[in-house]
Nucleic acid binder design. Structure first.
Length: 583
RNA sequence: CGGGGCGUAGCUCAGCUUGGCAGAGCGCUCGGUUUGGGACCGAGAGGCCGCCGGUUCGAGUCCGGCCGCCCCGACCA
């Protein structure tokens, strides 16, 4: 490609709204252009990177028996209604065609795949199968961010497995995880696979591939001593603390202006571990709230810990939570800021009357707590579970955080931010059951198909590659995903013979199949060309100039290194295989 | 959806406090010089100052509403 003919140009300054390095550099270096919030055009260079990543993914998927196909992005509403997600997935873009036909834009493709399975999988002989495709996803994200990190329209590789049984799925699953590691390794991205909550995707297990990054939107827990790692939504930790040897007397004390745990602990003179924190939620079974549906949930944990909403939902067996309103809290005679379970009748389960009180395990690792008196402005001291109040159930609902004890080795864990680049789900029969997608087993009996789904965001991965591979001057692409291998730079003036040499080299390299970006621009200073080359980040820079020719050849420089060397012209065929230059 | 910030030339930004001719640098066009790290001289083009309404003799500037974009949070299938 001749730079003199390329569409678009590099920018000296990044648009003001770009904050992340990848966002700034990809725009400045002419890889992407914004069309709106979370919507980008891939310029010629950017599209070449996407195609490189695409190729790596296709190779790795094919290597584990994947079959590449191409699924639609316009989804008839009926498919989404069949799985129950039409009314549940809030980020689903919906649109109407003529005659009131309704469609969804592809937010994901489980619906398409399970419909295919329904039609085309008939016998156990048709299983197992692994299919995948790379195409656009559309999600009405409330807040796109970070350039290509979080988009409303993005490119995803998603693979789907169809198996006879859970065991068959379990057996295949590790090869998918390995393929994922291979893909990320080949792209120059070191990932950590962590156990994550499955969320509303359904299913039972999921592994999230993350890259630690300060501007990531995921928080995960990492042990500094062993390899335990998990998303905070699923991370376990060891509660520390002791029950008191003797129970103190329950005493009501006046605590003016003490609305927070820290206030109360300081006022009464105890550690926050000797307090109980109470948070009120409104639980409902479906995403869309319906009048008269749902109930209040009273969540409690030791005062030094925070409640994790996802863990709480899981402890309740599913559903959705929002913060309870003041009226809903008052309806059970609790006083916000001074609430406790004292005097309340806990519900036995979600269907029973009383107050649904869920306490974190941590309350068993302490006692003689300071708790609210359900009266403004009073607290009790010396409160103890069993003697002074009861709960509906005790579960793991507190969020793991930095400094907590590792559940595996007993070391200390740390909360870190990360960017999620891939996710593998064992879906089980969540979707096949919804549409009754079955196969006939050896005995002629219909059995539900076991599914798995496995996604990687290509554009997000591209951004992460840049986050990990750049310096002050620009991008430094790994060879594997670089849009071109050689950035050929011509410097010289009319009639000094340099142009002819550069043109000849360009022709030879191109004819030999080397991917060359050729800066043939006339009247552009050497400084500009070098700055652009650094910005664009192509692995090898080859300069043809009067100076290099005087020194006997062309100058070769690796983007990632500062060393430049002269390669004699007669040895130029070595450039036909740039990998040789590494030796 | 809550909090904060921003919207003026392709990009970065001044001008708004205190209403009075629409500005700079970079980029772009033309001519010339230059040619190893974002060069120089000269001449140009380029604007619904986000949109709508209000106040005013007069609004980029003041007031109200809306839209868009960015950041934090919520959400994140």
């Amino acid at each position: 490609m001749r730079l003199s003919q390329s569409f678009g140009k590099t920018l000296r300054e990044a648009p003001a709204e770009a904050e992340m390095a990848s966002h700034q550099l990809l725009i400045r270096a002419n890889y992407i252009r914004p069309a709106g919030a979370g919507v980008y055009t891939f310029m010629p260079l950017g599209y070449r990177v996407i195609r490189k990543i695409w190729g790596i993914m296709a190779e790795e998927m094919d290597a584990i028996s994947g079959q590449e196909m191409w699924m639609p992005n316009l989804h008839p509403a009926a498919l989404w209604q069949a799985t129950g997600r039409w009314g549940q997935m809030d980020v689903l873009f919906k649109l109407k065609g003529s005659g009131n036909r309704e469609y969804a834009l592809s937010a994901t493709h489980e619906e398409i795949v399970v419909d295919l399975a329904l039609r085309d999988i008939e016998s156990h002989r048709d299983l197992p199968r692994m299919i995948y495709h790379i195409s656009k996803k559309f999600r009405d994200e409330p807040r796109p961010r970070g350039g290509l990190i979080r988009l409303r329209e993005f490119i995803m590789k998603d693979a789907y497995t169809l198996d006879r049984s859970e065991e068959a799925l379990d057996e295949y699953y590790p090869s998918m995880l390995q393929a994922y590691f291979n893909i990320f390794d080949r792209c120059g991205v070191k990932t950590t696979a962590i156990n994550a909550d499955v969320g509303a995707m359904g299913g039972k297990t999921s592994q999230e591939f993350t890259v630690p990054h300060p501007q990531g939107e995921d928080v995960f827990i990492d042990c500094d001593n062993c390899d335990y790692a998990a998303n905070v939504e699923a991370a376990e930790f060891v509660r520390e603390g002791e029950k008191p040897a003797t129970l103190a007397e329950l005493i009501k004390v006046e605590t003016p202006d003490c609305k927070t745990i820290a206030d109360v602990a300081a006022f009464v003179g105890v550690a926050t571990t000797q307090t109980l924190k109470c948070v009120f939620y409104w639980w409902r079974p479906s995403y869309v709230e319906k009048p008269g549906e749902g109930r209040l949930v009273f969540a409690m944990t030791r005062g030094d810990l925070a409640i994790n909403d996802t863990k709480l939902v899981n402890a309740l067996g599913g559903g959705f939570l929002r913060a309870a309103t003041e009226d809903e809290i008052k309806a059970i005679d609790a006083v916000p800021g001074y609430a406790s379970a004292i005097g309340m009748t806990p519900a036995r389960d979600m269907a029973s009357p009383g107050v649904m009180i869920v306490a974190d395990e941590s309350i068993n690792f302490g006692g003689n707590y300071v708790v609210g008196a359900n009266e403004d402005p009073y607290h009790y001291t010396g409160a103890n579970l069993g003697r002074d109040f009861e709960v509906s159930r005790i579960a793991d609902i507190a969020q793991a955080d930095t400094g907590h004890k590792c559940p595996v080795c007993g070391g200390r864990i740390e909360a870190k931010r990360a960017i999620e680049v891939g996710h593998c789900f064992k879906l089980g029969t969540r979707y096949s059951a919804a549409v009754n997608a079955t196969y006939l087993d050896e005995n002629g009996q219909p059995q539900l198909i076991y599914m798995g789904s496995y996604g990687i965001g290509l554009d997000r991965l591209m951004a992460v590659v840049v986050e990990l591979h750049h310096d002050k001057d620009g991008i430094v692409w790994p060879d594997s995903v670089a849009p071109y291998q050689v950035h050929l730079v011509h410097i010289g003036k009319e009639g000094d013979g340099t142009k002819e040499q550069a043109e000849a080299l360009y022709a030879d390299l191109t004819a030999a199949g080397v991917e060359v970006l050729y800066d043939d621009r006339d009247g552009v200073g050497a400084g500009v060309k070098f700055k652009d080359a650094d910005l664009m980040g192509i692995p090898w820079r080859v300069t043809v100039s009067a100076r290099s020719l005087e020194q006997g050849g062309v100058e070769v420089k690796r983007r990632s290194e500062s060393e430049r060397r002269i390669l004699p012209i007669e040895e130029y065929p070595i450039l036909l295989n740039p990998a040789l230059l590494n030796s």
